[in-house]
């Protein structure tokens, strides 16, 4: 930036700085506001009098004796058994990530190495499947699942999420495998490996960045899912996001809204941590599909 011709004129610099600050507020402020507000009582978070109350919390202080309260979290996690939903979410997301990566690396490798015409049709079918609204698929599941008596169990949900996740996982891993030179596994096979050994011993070790990135997106899909989990699991045995939705219906009375606020913040915090640690992989994953155009 030492080149004087690249230096910005002052108005443009002010304008662009202003725009960045504006965008940061738009992107981050709602979350920070809700996190701060989740430690208040409803009268402050939804203040009829003055919005400053949500920051200072006079009613919270009057009701609980301190400007911060964890009543919302206590109510949601213990009284409404949100912890149960958290455990379920953990089981579902971990299983979905592990299974879809296992299936996806095998399939993606095959698609990247086979030159036959049907790989094109498989990838196109995967693209169409990727575009299907999840709820249309769910309307196909419900009746057969009722008939087979496998509705409402976590394993069913896990398998369904894995399948819904497959098209995306295949596309992403396929493009990562394409970037690994064919010579690598072919020379391993010349040295006497079978195709599977070459895959496991020569290709997978250099694939870790791609696998981690794809895993992150599988995690996000399973963690963020509302459609599948809310339709395939019972009210008592559900995951976090449907649980939050059920708070909204049943808890209109005073104070209960704060349960939902606390639960929402509890669902956001893990994502904060995820972005903090994996920002680079997320960015590279978002652009992985774009490179191929």
């Amino acid at each position: 930036m030492s080149n004087p011709s690249q230096r910005k004129p002052l108005p443009l610099a002010v304008l662009s700085t202003g725009f960045v600050i504006f965008w940061l507020i738009v992107a981050a402020f709602p979350f920070l506001w809700t996190m701060w507000g989740s430690f208040k009582v409803e009268g402050d978070f939804f203040s009829r009098v003055n919005w400053v109350n949500a920051i200072t919390g006079p009613i919270t202080e009057r009701q609980t004796g301190s400007p911060f309260t964890d009543a919302g979290y206590e109510g949601a996690w213990i009284a409404q058994e949100f912890w149960r939903a958290v455990v379920n979410t953990a089981i579902v997301t971990v299983s979905v990530v592990v299974i879809s990566l296992t299936l996806g690396t095998l399939g993606g490798y095959a698609l990247a190495r086979s030159g036959f015409k049907y790989t094109f049709w498989l990838l196109m079918a995967a693209l169409v499947f990727r575009a299907m609204p999840h709820v249309t698929l769910v309307s196909g599941y419900l009746l057969p699942f009722f008939e087979l008596n496998i509705w409402g169990f976590l394993p069913t949900t896990i398998i369904v999420l894995v399948a819904i996740n497959q098209p995306f996982t295949l596309w992403m891993l396929h493009s990562f495998f394409l970037s690994i030179p064919k010579d690598l596994d072919e020379s391993a096979m010349v040295d006497g490996c079978t195709r599977f050994q070459a895959f496991r011993l020569a290709v997978i070790p250099v694939m870790w960045p791609g696998v981690v990135t794809t895993g992150l997106f599988s995690f996000l899909l399973a963690y963020n899912d509302f459609t599948v989990t809310s339709m395939l699991l019972t009210q008592e045995n559900t995951t976090m996001i449907p649980k939050i939705n059920s708070f909204l219906g049943s808890t209109q009375e005073e104070g209960k809204v704060m349960y939902a606020v606390a639960a929402v913040v509890s669902a956001i915090v893990p994502l904060f941590a995820l972005i903090l640690f994996f920002q680079r992989q997320i960015v590279s994953g978002l652009t992985a599909g774009a490179v191929k155009g």
Binding site: T102, A110, S139, I159, I164
Partner: peptide
């Protein structure tokens, strides 16, 4: 290599569309 993921997609995406 591809059958597990193909099976998952046929069972839970293609067949549900037919079922719909």
């Amino acid at each position: 290599f591809i059958w597990p993921s193909l099976l998952a997609m046929i069972l839970f995406i293609a067949i549900p569309i037919i079922s719909v």
